[in-house]
Protein backbone atom coordinates (compact mmCIF):
# COMPACT_ATOMS: atom_id res chain seq x y z
CA UNK A 1 0.00 0.00 0.00
CA UNK A 2 1.47 3.35 -0.92
CA UNK A 3 1.87 6.22 1.49
CA UNK A 4 -0.94 8.32 0.07
CA UNK A 5 -3.51 5.57 0.43
CA UNK A 6 -2.23 4.88 3.93
CA UNK A 7 -2.69 8.50 5.09
CA UNK A 8 -6.22 8.25 3.74
CA UNK A 9 -7.02 4.88 5.33
CA UNK A 10 -5.46 5.40 8.75
CA UNK A 11 -7.97 7.95 10.11
CA UNK A 12 -10.82 5.64 9.07
CA UNK A 13 -9.13 2.72 10.81
CA UNK A 14 -8.60 4.67 14.05
CA UNK A 15 -12.24 5.80 13.83
CA UNK A 16 -13.48 2.21 13.58
CA UNK A 17 -11.19 1.25 16.44
CA UNK A 18 -12.66 4.04 18.60
CA UNK A 19 -16.19 2.84 17.89
CA UNK A 20 -15.14 -0.68 18.88
CA UNK A 21 -13.62 0.64 22.14
CA UNK A 22 -16.82 2.59 22.71
CA UNK A 23 -18.91 -0.61 22.49
CA UNK A 24 -16.48 -2.51 24.71
CA UNK A 25 -16.62 0.21 27.40
CA UNK A 26 -20.41 0.36 27.21
CA UNK A 27 -21.07 -3.38 27.26
CA UNK A 28 -18.34 -4.77 29.51
CA UNK A 29 -16.81 -2.00 31.58
CA UNK A 30 -19.61 0.32 32.64
CA UNK A 31 -21.98 -1.05 35.32
CA UNK A 32 -25.49 -1.34 34.01
CA UNK A 33 -26.90 1.68 35.87
CA UNK A 34 -24.29 3.96 34.22
CA UNK A 35 -24.71 2.76 30.64
CA UNK A 36 -27.00 5.67 29.77
CA UNK A 37 -23.93 7.94 29.95
CA UNK A 38 -22.53 6.34 26.84
CA UNK A 39 -25.34 5.62 24.40
CA UNK A 40 -24.48 2.98 21.84
CA UNK A 41 -23.31 4.30 18.45
CA UNK A 42 -26.36 2.72 16.85
CA UNK A 43 -28.60 4.63 19.27
CA UNK A 44 -26.84 7.87 18.26
CA UNK A 45 -27.35 6.93 14.63
CA UNK A 46 -31.04 6.36 15.30
CA UNK A 47 -31.25 9.77 16.99
CA UNK A 48 -29.80 11.29 13.81
CA UNK A 49 -32.68 9.80 11.83
CA UNK A 50 -35.38 10.61 14.40
CA UNK A 51 -34.28 14.17 14.96
CA UNK A 52 -33.25 14.85 11.36
CA UNK A 53 -35.67 17.77 10.79
CA UNK A 54 -34.68 19.54 14.03
CA UNK A 55 -30.97 18.93 13.48
CA UNK A 56 -31.12 20.13 9.88
CA UNK A 57 -33.01 23.30 10.81
CA UNK A 58 -30.64 23.97 13.73
CA UNK A 59 -27.55 23.40 11.55
CA UNK A 60 -28.90 25.79 8.92
CA UNK A 61 -29.66 28.40 11.58
CA UNK A 62 -26.24 28.13 13.26
CA UNK A 63 -24.49 27.92 9.90
CA UNK A 64 -26.19 31.12 8.76
CA UNK A 65 -25.30 32.93 11.99
CA UNK A 66 -21.70 31.75 11.79
CA UNK A 67 -21.43 32.74 8.14
CA UNK A 68 -22.89 36.21 8.63
CA UNK A 69 -20.82 36.95 11.74
CA UNK A 70 -17.66 35.62 10.14
CA UNK A 71 -18.22 37.63 6.94
CA UNK A 72 -18.86 40.80 8.92
CA UNK A 73 -15.66 40.14 10.89
CA UNK A 74 -13.66 39.71 7.67
CA UNK A 75 -14.92 43.02 6.27
CA UNK A 76 -14.59 44.86 9.59
CA UNK A 77 -11.09 43.55 10.23
CA UNK A 78 -9.94 44.58 6.74
CA UNK A 79 -11.05 48.16 7.43
CA UNK A 80 -9.65 48.25 10.97
CA UNK A 81 -6.45 46.45 9.93
CA UNK A 82 -5.81 49.07 7.25
CA UNK A 83 -6.47 51.86 9.74
CA UNK A 84 -4.19 50.32 12.36
CA UNK A 85 -1.40 49.77 9.82
CA UNK A 86 -1.38 53.47 8.89
CA UNK A 87 -0.31 54.90 12.23
CA UNK A 88 1.56 53.71 15.33
CA UNK A 89 -0.49 56.19 17.39
CA UNK A 90 -3.78 54.62 16.33
CA UNK A 91 -2.29 51.22 17.16
CA UNK A 92 -1.17 52.39 20.60
CA UNK A 93 -4.63 53.79 21.29
CA UNK A 94 -6.70 50.82 20.14
CA UNK A 95 -4.61 47.67 20.57
CA UNK A 96 -4.94 47.29 24.38
CA UNK A 97 -8.72 47.59 24.11
CA UNK A 98 -8.92 45.05 21.31
CA UNK A 99 -6.84 42.79 23.52
CA UNK A 100 -9.19 43.39 26.46
CA UNK A 101 -12.17 42.54 24.30
CA UNK A 102 -10.54 39.31 23.17
CA UNK A 103 -9.57 38.28 26.71
CA UNK A 104 -13.05 38.84 28.13
CA UNK A 105 -14.71 35.41 27.88
CA UNK A 106 -17.42 35.48 25.25
CA UNK A 107 -19.83 33.57 27.49
CA UNK A 108 -19.74 36.49 29.92
CA UNK A 109 -20.31 39.02 27.16
CA UNK A 110 -23.10 37.04 25.54
CA UNK A 111 -25.90 37.87 28.03
CA UNK A 112 -24.96 41.56 27.87
CA UNK A 113 -25.00 41.56 24.10
CA UNK A 114 -28.38 39.84 24.02
CA UNK A 115 -29.75 42.60 26.24
CA UNK A 116 -28.38 45.14 23.77
CA UNK A 117 -29.38 43.70 20.40
CA UNK A 118 -32.17 41.34 21.41
CA UNK A 119 -32.34 37.54 21.15
CA UNK A 120 -32.27 35.45 17.97
CA UNK A 121 -30.04 35.53 14.90
CA UNK A 122 -28.92 39.11 15.53
CA UNK A 123 -27.07 38.30 18.74
CA UNK A 124 -25.67 35.07 17.30
CA UNK A 125 -24.17 37.13 14.48
CA UNK A 126 -22.74 39.72 16.89
CA UNK A 127 -21.17 37.10 19.16
CA UNK A 128 -19.66 35.26 16.18
CA UNK A 129 -18.33 38.57 14.89
CA UNK A 130 -16.64 39.32 18.21
CA UNK A 131 -14.96 35.94 18.54
CA UNK A 132 -13.65 35.93 14.92
CA UNK A 133 -12.65 39.57 14.82
CA UNK A 134 -9.47 39.62 16.92
CA UNK A 135 -7.33 37.01 15.11
CA UNK A 136 -8.32 38.59 11.80
CA UNK A 137 -7.41 42.13 12.86
CA UNK A 138 -4.10 41.12 14.42
CA UNK A 139 -2.96 39.07 11.45
CA UNK A 140 -4.13 41.56 8.82
CA UNK A 141 -2.40 44.43 10.61
CA UNK A 142 0.77 42.38 11.06
CA UNK A 143 0.70 41.46 7.37
CA UNK A 144 0.26 45.05 6.23
CA UNK A 145 3.22 46.06 8.40
CA UNK A 146 5.51 43.24 7.24
CA UNK A 147 6.17 44.41 3.70
CA UNK A 148 9.72 43.69 2.51
CA UNK A 149 11.72 46.92 2.85
CA UNK A 150 13.59 46.37 -0.39
CA UNK A 151 10.27 46.09 -2.20
CA UNK A 152 9.16 49.35 -0.60
CA UNK A 153 12.36 50.97 -1.92
CA UNK A 154 11.65 49.50 -5.35
CA UNK A 155 8.21 51.12 -5.33
CA UNK A 156 9.70 54.41 -4.15
CA UNK A 157 12.19 54.32 -7.02
CA UNK A 158 9.25 53.61 -9.34
CA UNK A 159 7.54 56.73 -7.95
CA UNK A 160 4.50 54.71 -6.88
CA UNK A 161 1.68 56.70 -5.30
CA UNK A 162 0.57 55.64 -1.79
CA UNK A 163 -2.53 54.07 -3.37
CA UNK A 164 -0.43 52.09 -5.85
CA UNK A 165 1.87 50.97 -3.05
CA UNK A 166 -1.11 49.77 -1.03
CA UNK A 167 -2.83 48.02 -3.92
CA UNK A 168 0.14 46.45 -5.68
CA UNK A 169 2.48 45.83 -2.75
CA UNK A 170 1.12 46.03 0.79
CA UNK A 171 -2.14 44.18 0.29
CA UNK A 172 -0.70 41.25 -1.72
CA UNK A 173 2.19 40.99 0.79
CA UNK A 174 -0.33 40.81 3.62
CA UNK A 175 -2.36 37.99 2.05
CA UNK A 176 -0.51 35.04 3.64
CA UNK A 177 -0.93 36.67 7.08
CA UNK A 178 -4.56 37.46 6.35
CA UNK A 179 -5.25 33.82 5.46
CA UNK A 180 -3.60 32.65 8.69
CA UNK A 181 -6.03 34.88 10.59
CA UNK A 182 -8.84 33.63 8.40
CA UNK A 183 -8.13 29.99 9.27
CA UNK A 184 -8.05 30.72 13.01
CA UNK A 185 -11.25 32.76 12.74
CA UNK A 186 -12.96 30.04 10.70
CA UNK A 187 -12.30 27.55 13.48
CA UNK A 188 -13.68 29.99 16.08
CA UNK A 189 -16.75 31.23 14.17
CA UNK A 190 -18.95 28.09 14.56
CA UNK A 191 -17.97 27.89 18.23
CA UNK A 192 -19.02 31.51 18.68
CA UNK A 193 -22.28 30.90 16.84
CA UNK A 194 -23.11 27.85 18.97
CA UNK A 195 -22.18 29.61 22.22
CA UNK A 196 -24.31 32.60 21.22
CA UNK A 197 -27.12 30.27 20.30
CA UNK A 198 -27.12 28.71 23.78
CA UNK A 199 -28.09 32.11 25.18
CA UNK A 200 -30.00 33.67 22.35
CA UNK A 201 -31.48 30.81 20.37
CA UNK A 202 -34.88 30.30 21.94
CA UNK A 203 -36.59 33.22 20.29
CA UNK A 204 -39.20 33.47 17.57
CA UNK A 205 -41.21 30.31 18.19
CA UNK A 206 -38.56 28.24 19.94
CA UNK A 207 -36.61 27.14 16.83
CA UNK A 208 -32.95 27.85 17.61
CA UNK A 209 -29.60 26.61 16.40
CA UNK A 210 -27.33 23.79 17.54
CA UNK A 211 -26.45 25.45 20.86
CA UNK A 212 -30.13 25.81 21.66
CA UNK A 213 -30.77 22.14 20.77
CA UNK A 214 -27.86 21.07 22.98
CA UNK A 215 -29.35 22.96 25.92
CA UNK A 216 -32.80 21.40 25.33
CA UNK A 217 -31.51 17.83 24.88
CA UNK A 218 -29.33 17.95 27.97
CA UNK A 219 -32.20 19.38 30.01
CA UNK A 220 -34.43 16.58 28.75
CA UNK A 221 -31.71 13.98 29.27
CA UNK A 222 -31.91 12.87 25.63
CA UNK A 223 -28.32 11.67 25.50
CA UNK A 224 -28.25 10.04 22.03
CA UNK A 225 -29.70 13.24 20.55
CA UNK A 226 -27.16 15.30 22.50
CA UNK A 227 -24.35 13.18 21.06
CA UNK A 228 -25.81 13.62 17.59
CA UNK A 229 -25.85 17.40 18.12
CA UNK A 230 -22.19 17.32 19.18
CA UNK A 231 -21.23 15.33 16.09
CA UNK A 232 -23.09 17.63 13.71
CA UNK A 233 -21.51 20.69 15.38
CA UNK A 234 -18.13 19.14 14.76
CA UNK A 235 -19.02 18.54 11.10
CA UNK A 236 -20.14 22.15 10.75
CA UNK A 237 -16.76 23.27 12.10
CA UNK A 238 -15.01 21.00 9.59
CA UNK A 239 -17.08 22.40 6.73
CA UNK A 240 -16.27 25.95 7.79
CA UNK A 241 -12.53 25.51 8.31
CA UNK A 242 -12.25 23.24 5.28
CA UNK A 243 -13.82 25.81 2.97
CA UNK A 244 -11.49 28.53 4.20
CA UNK A 245 -8.39 26.33 3.88
CA UNK A 246 -9.47 25.47 0.36
CA UNK A 247 -9.96 29.14 -0.55
CA UNK A 248 -6.57 30.13 0.89
CA UNK A 249 -4.93 27.28 -1.01
CA UNK A 250 -6.55 28.43 -4.26
CA UNK A 251 -5.36 31.99 -3.67
CA UNK A 252 -1.78 31.30 -2.67
CA UNK A 253 -0.76 27.99 -4.26
CA UNK A 254 0.83 29.56 -7.32
CA UNK A 255 3.32 31.74 -5.53
CA UNK A 256 3.58 31.01 -1.81
CA UNK A 257 6.12 28.47 -0.55
CA UNK A 258 3.97 27.22 2.32
CA UNK A 259 1.40 25.99 -0.20
CA UNK A 260 3.74 23.92 -2.32
CA UNK A 261 3.60 20.11 -2.31
CA UNK A 262 6.20 18.66 0.07
CA UNK A 263 8.81 16.21 -1.12
CA UNK A 264 8.81 14.01 1.95
Amino acid sequence: MNRRALTFALPILTGLLLIAVWYVVRLWILPEHQRFLLPAPDAVARAFVDKAPQLAAATASTGLGAFLGFSAAVLGSAVLGLTLSLSPLVRAGLYPWLMALQLTPIIVLAPILILWVGPGLKSVVVITFLISFFPLVVNTTQGLLSTDRNLVDLFRMGRASPAQQLLHLRIPSALPYFFTGLRIAAALAPIGAIAGDMFAGNSGGGQGGLGFLAVIYSAQFQLPALYATAIISCLLGFAFAGTVIWISWLSLRRWHDAYQPKDN
Binding site: D148, N150, L151, D153, L154, M157, R254
Partner: peptide, 18 residues
Protein backbone atom coordinates in the same frame (compact mmCIF):
# COMPACT_ATOMS: atom_id res chain seq x y z
CA UNK B 1 13.46 63.18 -9.94
CA UNK B 2 14.11 59.47 -9.69
CA UNK B 3 12.51 59.04 -13.15
CA UNK B 4 15.87 58.72 -14.87
CA UNK B 5 17.31 56.27 -12.35
CA UNK B 6 16.91 52.54 -11.83
CA UNK B 7 18.11 50.58 -8.81
CA UNK B 8 19.23 46.96 -8.73
CA UNK B 9 19.23 45.55 -5.21
CA UNK B 10 21.35 42.70 -3.89
CA UNK B 11 18.11 40.77 -3.67
CA UNK B 12 16.21 40.43 -6.97
CA UNK B 13 13.17 42.12 -5.32
CA UNK B 14 10.61 40.40 -7.53
CA UNK B 15 7.00 40.29 -6.38
CA UNK B 16 6.40 36.59 -5.69
CA UNK B 17 2.70 36.75 -6.59
CA UNK B 18 3.35 38.04 -10.11
Amino acid sequence: TPANRAFLFQDATLLPWL
